[in-house]
Write a protein that binds this DNA or RNA. Structure first.
Lengths: 142, 142
DNA sequence: TTCTCGGGTGTAATATTATAACGTCGCAGT
DNA sequence: ACTGCGACGTTATAATATTACACCCGAGAA
């Protein structure tokens, strides 16, 4: 799921930053790589551990800033129910995604397209939706 | 939204506990009341503050245990994206709800009924869904 | 009655997740 | 050079949540 020396995700990120006039700095790139290389959702403090082979560098704000940046670009999604982060599997910037998280193997699949509501209350205007499904993926059902 | 001396929510909770052979202890009842009395999602540590007029009592586990119990019975929902809790506005025990949270006034409306997915990945079996919409409610749109 | 067992709670400590505040550095534009 | 700004470093702390263990009390068995 992730072994190229320069992954498609990275290339897409470069492109997107270019378009938006944003800078994909080494730290941001590294965090993006780590999130994508992981098998499932990654915790911020796990990233932190991985980022600091040498002592001194990589404190929490470092990783949270990078994640915030990547979230803003839609390159990474936060799994709210897990306080964890997953790489966006689409090569474009996307708004909110619908996530399917396997409780057995931890894999995450993403869908797009309005999954929305059967019934929205009266005048409610939705700005942002969090949609996370937990269950068992096809592979993990014996 | 909550001013009876014995609210419908409380009565429903009594009934439900009865049916299930669970005990609605004073702490649990108090937490349920507080969650329902609040205008919007409540943080665990705010409950904690409210619960301890006198020093000494009410440590985090107290409130988390009560919340866990109430969540289990479906009397309270957790808003994952806020790390906060809301009272279930239905008088029955319900599975997951679809929540509409107004970013202006903080009010929460609940809908039930499969809001689910336009497209579920291949063999994925959903066990639990988190669906939270953030935006602006009818009242808050001038 | 006494025993014991389990659920609920009290308590202390600690783990985990996240942010605030402030300083520094380097670079783009003047 | 000077200035301003964005990214990052660093320290501290806030906010959220859990672990572990002790105690109490009430239900049912002995």
């Amino acid at each position: 799921m992730s072994r190229e020396t320069t992954s498609p995700a990275l290339q897409a990120a470069e492109k997107l930053c270019d378009e938006r006039g944003e800078r994909l700095t080494p730290i941001r790139r590294r965090v993006l790589e780590l999130v994508h290389e992981a098998d499932g959702p990654v915790k911020a403090y796990d990233l932190l551990e991985t980022l600091k082979p040498g002592p001194g560098s990589a404190k929490p704000p470092t990783v949270y800033r990078a994640l915030e940046f990547l979230l803003g670009l839609g390159l990474v999604h936060k799994v709210e129910a897990l306080n964890a982060y997953v790489g966006c599997s689409h090569s474009h910037s996307c708004g909110g995604a619908e996530l399917f998280i396997c409780s057995d193997c931890g894999s995450v699949q993403e869908c797009h397209g309005a999954p929305v509501s059967t019934q929205t209350p009266d005048g409610f205007i939705i700005e942002r939706s969090v949609v996370e499904h937990f269950g068992h993926c096809g592979n993990c059902r014996t």
